[in-house]
């Protein structure tokens, strides 16, 4: 399973967002605000989900903010950290 598919499945399960794994979901859509509508509590959960499922700790919040833009940016960030 590639990173993006695994990420979407993890977020769908842990944040109760079944639409993420649907065919029509735009992976460039914003995760927060007008897009998927996530909020600050989801952001904390997101950090935990990534640590739990990919073993990656996000400590630099500036870096995290950019990574949390969309599914595509987050998957790219995870791949970059895993290959470092």
């Amino acid at each position: 399973m590639d990173t993006k598919t695994k990420l979407k499945k993890a977020l769908a399960d842990e944040l109760n967002l079944p639409e993420l794994t649907g065919e029509g979901y735009n992976d460039d859509a914003a995760l927060f605000g007008e897009g998927l509508g996530l909020d600050s509590l989801d952001a904390v959960e997101l950090v935990i989900v990534i640590q739990k499922h990919f073993g990656i700790e996000i400590k630099d919040m500036d870096e995290g903010k950019t990574a949390f833009t969309s599914i595509n940016t987050l998957a790219a960030y995870i791949d970059k950290r895993l290959s470092a």
């Binding site: 842990e14 944040l15 509590l41 904390v44 959960e45 935990i48 640590q51 739990k52």
Partner: peptide
Amino acid sequence: RDGDVCTSPIHFA
């Protein structure tokens, strides 16, 4: 299951 570091914030809330 996940340890205190990875405990779900949503379940806590």
